[in-house]
Design a binder for these strands. Structure first.
Lengths: 347, 347
DNA sequence: GGTTGGCACTCGACGGCATAGAGTGCTAAC
DNA sequence: GTTAGCACTCTATGCCGTCGAGTGCCAACC
């Protein structure tokens, strides 16, 4: 069987209607609401074909049709017309970013809030990976004998810190020395370079301070590997409870228990394959049984061309893809700009 | 009408049973399951009295009785027997804190996770207020012309940072000078003292650097007032969806939308009046209509005797108060110890 | 050959009804 | 003061019949 223009029209009408109403769509409804110029009987025939092709399915014999995941996929790839955001929405977004921006974490939070507010679905935003960006400043502070705090500032504006154990004899002066060497040698380098090529150089430089050499090595190997420190912003979860597909407490429960596993959420968001642009994952494409009735729309945001993290929207498979994709695109642009501003200064 | 010993027995039995089963409790049930030595008819009479006194109520004529908020309050204040935690639970908690502790934020996260896991309700933990504790180190880093990052490290191990705008002409050397003065003058002071008494001193000290004086003043007034920066850990929300009182999606929705308002949650947790020990807020005592079917058990944790923040458990009014109070007490103790360790070093 | 109207059939949603069961309050007896 | 008995109330449950939306198929039509 071949997909022709009229089948596309019917599929488009059906999905559009289902997204709007959440009710199975019958042939009569399509004939009445969408002017295809044919009778319900004809549409019934087309629908039977579409069902055979796997694009739509029937919850039960005497109900209308509902899009399948394959149907949504076809819709997103070929049929969907992105409509531009309304004046009002554009306004809301740029207004949100007008606010005085304090730091990266703040911007992330802001973005998540806006995203869920505008789309009425749940928003997920992953904060920058520490390895992204380059090192701006390292400072070590002796908290009390045997314990020091390492503070690392990245050029992205992200600040990471960690408490480490040091030998009892180490003084703040020793730590200052190390900090200075680190700053001199490592400033402006990105994390990969730091780990791979510069260990030797520092080793040499610090050899005159034999007593603190071990500490320095320890620092490089342990403290600066700040991996697994991504944080996540999750907001607007109550939004998706407004969706009729979540009027069942059990479904809400499985979804919520999944959303509380931050690391899992991170890995989901990082599956956006396209470097530029928006990725849409529909239903079982997420490869998680608990989310087979959900879809995720993600995009990654950049800083100086390096992908820092991702933003995403999570909703039911019956999500308004056209709108959400537009919003995510727009938000990514705004976020990139905001980060740019944050790093370069305003005027 | 006067509360006598037998009325107390009946009330205790009724509340115990209701907490366990979530079903209205009838006179027959109490007579059968709890050996009070009297017949159902007598219990019926006592129950009629208790209802008149406002401790219990009837959902409808032909149902058993259910505790009122007043009843729970009486239970918590006078009847409840705290049972010690089981060997297994104690184990679980201390095991959780065995893990290598990285920083304050990490401990907070850990605590929240354990709390929700053990109680099977939702856990809320407020991170330390920046004003608590004393200043350990200030560092200013020029990010690019006109923008600097201020990093403040507290003796509690908390690290706060913020980006500020500075005059274009300011160099890193200028910032180092300011940082040095700040550190010399402010180290070991708490935030209140800093704000109130030391401005003058620094003003004097820096007067030789006229050009950066304005910046210094700005910093003190703006950047160091890190208020409103409390973060919150919220976990185990899906737990309370297991409670039968939340099998209605509407209730879940109102609760969730409330829980997403972090500032509101903070203010709820900070209502724990008793400086030492556990505070229980029952139903409408929370003074929030959306939470009139919830209770909150909170306690505040300390560092060197200063209250830093609060931990809390949120569940339905039909919560197992005895158990939760014990757990919160135990967790507070453990958290205090962990913070102590974090600040003093292990051995 | 594609399109259309007609018709029988299917299946879930909804409302009414009867029944069962739990629990109470009252009364009279102990 | 306590207890047993009894009539009464109210909800939950399950069963049915009806209604309506929607389909699939068939025959007629352009």
């Amino acid at each position: 069987m071949k997909m022709d223009a009229r089948k596309q029209q019917v599929l488009l009408a059906l999905i559009t209607d289902f997204i709007a109403t959440a009710e199975p769509v019958g042939s009569r409804t399509i004939a009445r609401k969408y002017t295809l110029g044919v009778s319900p009987a004809t549409i019934r025939n087309e629908m039977a074909d579409l069902e055979e092709m796997g694009f739509i399915e029937q919850p039960h014999t005497s109900a209308g049709r509902v899009p399948s995941h394959k149907g949504y996929r076809y819709y997103v790839d070929f049929l969907m017309k992105k409509h531009d955001l309304s004046r009002q929405e554009e306004e809301l977004i740029s207004q949100g970013y007008k606010e005085k921006v304090r730091d990266v974490g703040h911007v992330i939070h802001l973005t998540g809030g806006l995203l869920s507010q505008i789309t009425s679905y749940a928003a997920v935003v992953v904060t920058p990976k520490p390895i992204a960006g380059s090192l701006k400043h390292v400072q070590m502070i002796l908290m009390n004998p045997g314990r020091a705090m390492v503070v690392v500032v990245m050029n992205t504006g992200a600040v990471h810190h960690r408490i480490i154990e040091v030998a009892e004899g180490i003084t703040q002066t020793d730590l200052d020395t190390i900090s200075q060497v680190f700053n001199a040698k490592l400033q402006g380098q990105n994390m990969d370079t730091i780990k791979l090529t510069l260990i030797k150089e520092i080793y040499f430089e610090l050899s005159k301070h034999r007593n603190i050499l071990d500490l320095a090595m320890f620092l490089i190997n342990d403290s600066l590997t700040l991996e697994g420190e991504e944080k996540i912003y999750l907001g607007g979860v109550f939004n998706i409870l407004n969706q009729p597909e979540f009027n069942n407490v059990d479904k809400v429960k499985t979804l919520l228990s999944l959303l509380e596993q931050e690391d899992l959420l991170c890995s989901l968001l990082e599956r956006n394959t396209e470097p530029e642009g928006v990725t849409v994952l529909i239903g079982d494409e997420i490869k998680r049984d608990e989310m087979k009735e959900c879809s995720i729309v993600t995009a990654s945001y950049n800083f100086n061309g390096i992908p820092l993290g991702s933003i995403g929207v999570l909703g039911p498979t019956r999500m308004d893809y056209a709108r959400v994709v537009s919003v995510v695109e727009c938000m990514t642009r705004n976020l990139n700009e905001a980060l740019e501003k944050l790093s370069r200064g305003w005027k």
